[in-house]
């Protein structure tokens, strides 16, 4: 009989490779300090939630995350745990890397216990998407090259997260500050989107043509 069980080894999590790890040097050289900067935030803990926010299970999960957003674009949460609205009964919890159970965190376990046998899902999606952070006064101009949403601050306020397309890639776009955005592309799109953003940023490295 074949030995199917994987040998028990202690995994060194700091040897993990993030989806856009190959672009790290390119992000450093492609960033224009003070104008537009791009970096990858690696291995954030992400949890997919599917629950009716008005149900009992929804209320229990509400107390773990510190809120569930009510409408498109809304972001709820408390402390460094944020809950992004993806659909009427679908949410994405974003928390720091340390919240993951492989690093001793208890967020996912707490959410599972809160859901208990209520209707819904709690799924660890940490490896599903990676996180790009785009900051600087020109960040909006870079995104506008490939996003059809109105990104003007009078429409898109800081603290809004929308599921949309950027450079034809489906991403969740989260405006975290007046001049900072987080983009969540799926891992397999990270390389393409990273290069697309670098290309869109390139013109801001040159002196402005009057």
């Amino acid at each position: 009989m074949a030995e199917t069980a994987a040998p028990e080894t202690k995994k060194n999590l700091f040897l993990r490779t993030s989806p856009a790890a190959l672009l790290r040097a390119a992000f450093d050289t492609g960033s224009v300090p003070g104008t537009v900067e791009l970096s990858e935030i690696t291995f954030l803990t992400m949890v997919g939630l599917r629950v009716d926010r008005n149900s009992d299970a929804g209320q229990r999960i509400w107390s773990v995350t510190g809120g569930l957003p009510a409408a498109c674009g809304a972001v709820a949460g408390s402390g460094d745990t944020s809950v992004l609205w993806l659909g009427p009964e679908e949410f994405l919890v974003v928390a720091p890397m340390e919240a993951h159970e492989s690093l001793g965190g208890d967020l996912i376990q707490a959410l599972r216990e809160a859901l208990a046998d209520g209707e819904g899902q709690v799924v660890d999606l940490s490896a599903n998407r990676t996180t790009f952070e785009l900051t600087g006064p020109r960040a909006r101009a870079v995104l506008e090259k490939g996003c059809s949403l109105d990104l003007h601050p009078r429409v898109l306020k800081a603290g809004t997260a929308l599921s949309t397309e950027i450079g034809n890639i489906p991403v969740v776009l989260w405006k975290t500050g007046d001049e900072s955005y987080r983009l969540f592309p799926r891992a397999s799109f990270a390389d393409f989107l990273g290069r697309w953003l670098l290309d869109a940023m390139r013109e801001y490295a040159s002196p402005e043509v009057p």
Partner: peptide, 11 residues
């Protein structure tokens, strides 16, 4: 006709 908002709310 029926439509699905597949990149957004998936409804």
């Amino acid at each position: 006709e029926r439509w699905l908002h597949s990149t957004g709310c998936r409804q």
